[in-house]
Design a protein around this nucleic acid. Structure first.
Lengths: 220, 220, 220, 220
DNA sequence: AATGAATGAGGGTTCATTCAT
DNA sequence: CATGAATGAACCCTCATTCAT
């Protein structure tokens, strides 16, 4: 135990990341201190830095590995749903993924918004690039699986759909809650600013898919 | 000078905001200190706090007033283009606005991503609500002007388009530059992550407009 | 008082420096924390950084301003001792300064040893250069005053004597206390390592002055 | 290999010391971490502490064993130069040693300055005393060898010369590079602060030897 | 004897904010 | 109303050292 195997090391990394993730469910990035992550994960503060170079690295890791997990899940679900072969069935499938992403992984979407302006300024470059590479691979793999069944799409186009999906949802999140202020509901007005995230995301995605189908040449 | 007129006060507020805005062109939020804003605007640090309650308030102000300016400009341009009466012409008009927003006001989109997770946690609530109210009004006014000419849309729907526009662009920005790392171009791979922001935004907007038109019942 | 005059600012800088100096009498550099300097000087920790960029800057300032003070004192004493005109009288004068430097300003000699390896790695460059310039000037001024009365020396040579003086004493200090260990007297042996600093410094200085006089051509 | 012979242990100690020494050629004490020494020497961090109680102990060891080596070399060179019997020849010999010390072992002089203020505060007392005792012996041995040939000196006086030598050079080093700042050459001025270490050391040593000779009664 | 993961005190430093003038 | 000196909590992070294996 005093010379940890790579698996054990990975497990501890996950442990720390999980603690950070848990805290991120209910707190803003700035409110989460390394001390608190240490406490939450049950390790010493210094230990954190044996596994992640900076605070930002932890959250970047959360983002990238979280997205990998999400895409892997999508792939599994796609492979399980063998009957999805038509564009229309595929569209429905994608909208279901919208639902899952929004309801199960809102943290990814919040991290997404922080990536450029906050995380990337201090995250470990090497780790980030490795994470992106893996993410890229999973994304590509998913694209291939889809392209194999949905004729109208090639693998690149299929992969790209998930970039667009994230953009749509993450962008709508950026525009949300203009009828609130830091979790306080505002008294009146601002109804025009209200957004039902999922419904809006579905509509936008649907229109996008329709437009794309038409552009790509054909089918319904 | 010991009792400033409202105009003078407003002018100084703008002065400070302008300095912050200028710094934000080239720096991340976290890298901009109040001291630097004071230096840039030529006032003392303490003076900043006579005009803005917190640092976040400055940037929230930048976001809200910037969006107002943008929407007012859109309104002016729409009013100037009297020939826009068809859905198709209107669609083109909106895509032009995409271009302008992306090329002239990228700061607004970056601020957008910070709004929820960073700015709102510490911004002046009163000022923010006032700003939003004004923004709401401009947005509504714009919607009305559009609805008057574009039959298919009512004013709410027209106003809403600009929420969607920002969501689209801001969301795509969140997904951008995955082929870079903090302004450094990455050597290889990651091409699948590349996004041409404007082209992508235009396509997404276009598909959305097409879908919307179809849904709303009619034309082109 | 809320806009401090340069004199007042300088006074506060001195206040902080004095606190650091006092702590340095009895503690090693590494054992003196900024928190302690703050406590000792009665200001907040943050205030320290309004006056000195880094911890090392404080001690560099101590060294440079301390040496200035020392050289100014030497100058005053030299000017007061109008009867010093011969080389022999001047030699005695210099040996007296040895005594004063060793007994009154051992801190300068300890700081001297830290300058290169510790202080210079993190001291404020601008402040350091300014301090050196002033020191240079005082040193030069002293050299001029001496050269005017002691024919055998020109001003450069006279100035240089004080560099040599410091080198001698500071070097001997480096070799001292080999019969102790961190302030504990060692039981036996090591007598050959014993150094009576002042006596040794005087002897070395004296031999140097004799040699120099001979070399410069004459007297004694 | 689970019970190391004294030779093996000594070898590993040397290995570690050599790594530290190598790092010290190019880095300041504070910049050298135990982790780096471990990496450089190819052993684990924990192993370092099997051979040295503290970081400071390593560098203290470097200093003391380095000086021993130096003095042993001096002794060898003196024994090899059988023709050195006159004071004048001996003076020349000592100046040659100046050159060698300065050019080959600047690390010893830098460590010298750190000894009191940094190393001694945390070095292993036992090891340090042992090292000093050995050093003392070598120093004494050297003194004896010299005294045997140079009539004017007794062994104590001869030994003492090397203390003075180190004091001179180490003190001059403390005063050096005032025309630089942390390895950056300064633009102008400060020429009066320039020191040619070797030339200055030779002069000071020479004058000292002359003075000593005169004092001891005669020759030259 | 060797390892290297874990420790955690302590470090220096930053910076938004306050408030006496 | 403007100033900028003072604040001090909070920050992230380093690193020598320990010790279970």
């Amino acid at each position: 135990m005093y010379v940890l195997s790579p698996q054990e090391k990975e497990a501890k990394k996950q442990l720390i990341a999980a603690a950070a993730s848990k805290l991120f469910q209910k707190n803003d990035f700035n409110k989460i201190s390394m001390a608190r992550i240490a406490r939450e994960s049950g390790v010493a503060k210094g230990t954190l830095f044996n596994y992640f170079k900076t605070k930002e690295s932890i959250f970047m890791y959360l983002l990238l590995s979280g997205y990998q997990d999400y895409l892997k899940d999508v792939l599994l679900r796609f492979q399980a749903a063998e009957n999805i072969t038509t564009w229309s069935a595929f569209s429905s499938f994608l909208l279901e993924q919208n639902h899952l992403l929004i309801s199960k992984r809102p943290d990814l979407l919040r991290l997404n918004a922080l990536r450029g302006p906050i995380l990337e300024t201090a995250a470990d470059k090497e780790q980030t690039l490795l994470g992106r590479k893996k993410l890229y691979q999973v994304n590509h793999q998913l694209g291939q699986a889809i392209a194999k069944r949905i004729n109208i799409l090639d693998d690149k186009q299929a992969s790209h759909l998930f970039i667009i999906q994230s953009a749509i949802i993450s962008g709508l999140m950026n525009m949300m809650n203009l009828d609130e202020f830091h979790h306080d509901q505002l008294p009146v007005d601002f109804k025009g600013f209200q957004i039902d995230l999922e419904q809006e995301a579905n509509q936008l995605m649907l229109f996008y898919l329709q437009g794309l189908a038409q552009k790509l040449g054909g089918a319904k």
